[in-house]
Amino acid sequence: MRVLGIETSCDETGIALYDTERGLLADALYSQIAVHSEYGGVVPELASRDHVRKTLPLIQQVLDDAGITRSELDAVAYTAGPGLIGALMVGAGVGRAMAYALGIPAIGVHHMEGHLLAPMLEDNPPDFPFVALLVSGGHTQLVQVEGIGRYELLGESLDDAAGEAFDKAAKMMDLDYPGGPHIARLAERGTLGRFTFPRPMTDRPGLDFSFSGLKTYTLNTVAEHALDNGLPDDQTCADIALAFQEAVVGTLVIKCRRALKQTGYKRLVIAGGVSANKSLREQLEAQLAKIGASVFYARKEFCTDNGAMIAYAGAQRLLAGQTADLAIQVTPRWPMDQLTPAGTDAHD
């Protein structure tokens, strides 16, 4: 079965073609980072405008790259939520209508289920069950995963998502948007130990997160060392970036270990934009090796939003017999534990 995947939930237009027999056939991505960076964050109206321009040309490109025609598609999968409503509507509208015109089934996919299953596209995919750390600009969640659609939320951020904290810390030091990669690059030049930032909520039991206190601590440190232009000198910025990243990564590692201990599982999947962070990957691998657990993650370009994960997740749902009806539905706020296990009645 050849499934076209369409992802338009935020600021990337991602299109891919996944074959359940042959694997990933093609994928393409258009990132709107340049559009939004001068605003310091995603402007929803501009995001929607870009998606409606880019979606079809990228679909054409993916079909051309894979060397197949539109009539050889077997199904269309699109992100139905969570995300920006106007952005979701573009991908869902194009995808559902195209499937109708082609006379093939369509399926609305949960964006975070896409992220969670993205490591399945790699050569060494994890077996069920596992614990998943979903960590992005919009989410910080620990989820117990027993199978597709069988998710139990173990803990989540009570305020900012980890990726959001990265963005805001970057903004405090006037770094470019999105903040994650810029903080990480700057941190490489930082002096370990010059600053030590608090690891929020690690001294308390439970698997919830909080990053707003760390954000305030960062803001105060930046202000304390600010020069006339309002910013600390470049080395101090690097030291702050390192201390900030260490605090976020340290917190995530502690909670992941705790989640594995609580569930008794030996596999951890990390997914979402922040899972591309090198320090997070290295520290998790080192710490989890000590308890005999292993870490799984997607290649870097599939950590951030992409069409491949939507095509893959959609294919699993379709194989289980689920399809979307003709009423196009998007769900901007959609808790993951509301998903149904594959093989039972679908969301749509």
């Binding site: 409606v52 079809l56 539109r70 106007g86 573009v90 509208g93 194009v94 195209m98 015109a101 082609l102």
Partner: peptide, 20 residues
Amino acid sequence: SFTGLRVATGVVQGLAFGAD
């Protein structure tokens, strides 16, 4: 309405592309 226009445009893009 921007959103209304994009709903119609997205759906018509999908229909026309699918039907070639």
